[in-house]
Amino acid sequence: MPEVTPLPLSGYVVDVRYVGGVPTFVTGDGAVALGTAGRVVRPHAGGILAATLAADGKSLVTGGDDGKVMRTTADGDSTLLAERGRKWIDVVAAGPGGAIAFASGRTVVAIDGSGKTHELERPRAALGLAFFPKGLRLAIAGYNGAGLWFPGTAAPVQELEWKGSHIAVTVSPDGASVVTSMQEMALHGWRLRDGQNMRMSGYPAKVKSMSWSVKGRYLATSGAGVSVLWPFFHKDGPMGQRPLELGGRQELVTRVACHPSEEIAALGYDDGMILLSRFADREEVLLARPNGSPVSALAWSGNGLELAFGCESGAAGLIDLTA
């Protein structure tokens, strides 16, 4: 079994990211733990609800229950990006050219790379945000579909409609498909060139984690006793194709993270176990034994040789795959 360096934390691990190459853990009680030396900064007055990595990989963007959006670098310096009074900021996204976005209730705010703020009021709450890989375009998930917005332009929001509540969104790396996760325990996708709907259902739980494999060939997902990977390399995308299933167990997969350069995925489970699984032959390697607490965060280092993980209980650590 690969070597695990435990780094226990004080609270629920909301996310983990490699910031300027440094594994950086974010906890619900407000801590940002940088690296392995136990350095902790607290950019927010209270807890942290959401985090993402800036597109250049050099800073972490966090939203808190203090109504603030903060940027924190690997050396622990924090700057205020935006402030929205008492509202909780529980959705953040980062896009190309240094753009960031966040949502609070029905309001979506995008700050472009030059620092200019653009605001959009949606008819219902914005539940998920994702930037397109190029340009300044934002997908916004919400009730009865997703909206595609070009911040800073007068163009109307393009509405992708599908009945139900869409709680998260991701855009394929080629920008051709938008996929949402639904309250009704299914994924829904739209192929943008012709508006074709894609329905991906059969999950016993909500899909809380989605990760695109290298070159966007598969979308790996949590929410079942296996990780379901939908193929996007066929002409018609995943429709009519059997998805790949990895890491079948009795326990629910709670987090997935596809490797940055190989067709391999790290799978975190409801009982804290972490498995590595290869797409080609479904070969598995045990990375962490069950610890009783759901895996809530997973991230690969840029070179794909180290995996950082965190759990709801605050259990966290680094797994060295060169060993």
Partner: peptide, 9 residues
């Protein structure tokens, strides 16, 4: 779901 991240408080 957000309160779950602050369990204990």
């Amino acid at each position: 779901e957000n309160l779950a991240k602050r369990r204990g408080s």
